[in-house]
Amino acid sequence: MSQIVKGVIARSEGADVEVVDIVVPDPGPGEAVVKVEACGVCHTDLHYREGGINDEFPFLLGHEAAGVVEAVGEGVTEVQPGDFVILNWRAVCGQCRACAKGEPWYCFNTHNATQKMTLAEGDPMAGTELSPALGIGAFIEKTLVHAGQCTKVDREASAVAAGLLGCGVMAGFGAAVNTGGVTRGDSVAVIGCGGVGSAAIAGASLAGATKVIAIDVDERKLEGARRFGATHVVNSSGVDPVEAVQQLTDGVGADVVIDAVGRPETYRQAFYARDLAGTVVLVGVPTPDMEITLPLLDVFGRGGSLKSSWYGDCLPSRDFPMLIDLYRQGRFDLDAFVTETVELGDVEQAFDRMNAGEVLRSVVVLDQSQLTKEEPA
Score class of each variant (00 low, 15 high):
residue 158 S to L: 02
residue 15 A to Y: 04
residue 126 A to N: 05
residue 183 T to L: 00
residue 158 S to G: 04
residue 115 Q to R: 15
residue 10 A to E: 07
residue 250 D to L: 14
residue 127 G to I: 01
residue 324 I to T: 02
residue 275 D to L: 11
residue 135 G to V: 07
residue 57 F to G: 00
residue 254 A to C: 11
residue 41 V to L: 09
residue 229 G to Q: 04
residue 151 T to S: 13
residue 139 F to S: 10
residue 230 A to N: 08
residue 66 A to H: 01
residue 168 G to S: 11
residue 255 D to T: 04
residue 44 T to R: 12
residue 98 A to V: 06
residue 33 V to S: 04
residue 145 V to H: 05
residue 70 E to F: 07
residue 173 F to L: 15
residue 141 E to Y: 09
residue 363 V to I: 08
residue 289 D to K: 11
residue 367 D to N: 15
residue 39 C to A: 09
residue 322 M to A: 14
residue 28 G to L: 09
residue 98 A to P: 04
residue 200 A to M: 08
residue 218 D to W: 03
residue 122 G to H: 09
residue 98 A to N: 15
residue 143 T to H: 12
residue 1 M to L: 09
residue 320 F to D: 03
residue 353 R to Y: 04
residue 136 I to F: 01
residue 104 P to I: 12
residue 335 D to K: 10
residue 127 G to A: 05
residue 177 V to F: 11
residue 216 D to N: 02
residue 52 G to R: 14
residue 171 A to W: 00
residue 120 A to R: 11
residue 262 G to V: 06
residue 178 N to T: 10
residue 135 G to Y: 05
residue 237 S to M: 07
residue 286 P to N: 03
residue 359 V to A: 02
residue 136 I to N: 03
residue 208 G to K: 05
residue 57 F to A: 00
residue 177 V to D: 12
residue 355 N to V: 13
residue 133 A to I: 00
residue 304 G to F: 08
residue 206 L to A: 15
residue 244 A to V: 04
residue 193 C to M: 11
residue 161 A to F: 15
residue 40 G to N: 05
residue 160 V to N: 02
residue 153 V to F: 06
